[in-house]
């Protein structure tokens, strides 16, 4: 029965709110969900709308939301005790291979949100975890303290050079790999599509396995409407959002 109900929205209440930076806050909800990092939920506010959000935590459920438009701003108006409806978890999340090795996480913008959740899971499974966190300016960096507190080795990049390396997240790639505590590195990335494509290209030339959390315009989120197609026939909601390579250039259909 719970299986059959997986597609219905269920109401949660906001248990607490963490301010992450000027434009981003994390809604900590009142219950948990069995889910993998990289999976997403469709968040519904009646009379407002419904949009996809990565799980930034599952126990309890957390959503890290950047206020960039009408729906995300509506999520920012929620107060402790208010309700939010979620359907999910949906899609395929990150799937760390075994045995555990070195994980290099690459996050840009609010893409860092699921990476903290992923770091917690990886560390619990015995992985060494490093992370590159990139943003436009120092003020836009996200979850840096949270990742540091977990014991993740951090590289920061900002486009204006206000903190860390001046440049893009990919510019710290080789430094992070060189400092890796062991040779077997798997790269996990989440962020803007341009960043993901660049990470995929770097991993291809260096022969590293990679898992990329992709984004697309999502409507039905049950694999039927076709609006989240990426590349040659991939459905971000069903086949992704985590892909084992850049779905726009690779993954030819068998």
């Amino acid at each position: 029965m719970s299986e059959a109900l997986a597609g219905l929205h269920r109401p949660y209440r906001v248990a607490s709110i963490r301010l992450e930076n000027a434009a981003t806050r994390t809604l900590v909800l009142d219950r948990s969900l069995a889910a993998d990092p990289g999976q997403f939920v469709m968040a519904w506010l009646p009379d407002v709308g419904e949009k996809p959000f990565s799980l930034a935590g599952a126990d309890p459920v957390c959503l890290t939301v950047a206020a960039v438009g009408p729906f995300s701003r509506a999520l920012h108006t929620l107060a402790v005790g208010d309700r939010i409806w979620l359907r999910g978890p949906l899609g395929r999340g990150f799937a760390p291979p075994s045995p555990a090795g070195h994980a290099l996480l690459v996050g840009g913008g609010y893409g860092v949100a699921p990476l903290r959740f992923l770091a917690e899971r990886l560390l619990a499974a015995g992985w060494h975890v490093s992370a590159i966190v990139g943003a436009r300016r120092a003020a836009d960096l996200l979850l840096v303290e949270a990742l540091a507190a977990l014991g993740v080795r951090l590289w920061l990049t900002t486009e204006d050079g206000s903190v860390g390396l001046r440049g893009l997240a990919t510019d710290a790639f080789d430094a992070a790999l060189t400092a890796a505590p062991e040779a077997r590195t798997t790269v996990f990335a989440c962020g803007p599509v341009g960043m993901l494509a660049a990470v995929a290209a770097l991993c291809r030339t260096r022969g590293l396995p990679v898992q990329l959390a992709w984004e697309a315009h999502m409507r039905c989120a049950v694999g039927l409407c076709g609006s989240c197609e990426v590349g040659a026939g991939w459905l971000t909601c069903l086949d992704g959002p985590v892909f084992p390579c850049d779905p726009t250039v690779a993954l030819p259909m068998g």
Partner: peptide, 21 residues
């Protein structure tokens, strides 16, 4: 087409109103 939500699995089947996008 219509705004979200446009579809969901309600347990006994699906319901959709994509709106002929």
């Amino acid at each position: 087409g219509h705004p979200n939500p446009v579809a969901l699995d309600w347990g006994g089947g699906l319901i959709n109103a994509i709106g002929l996008t």
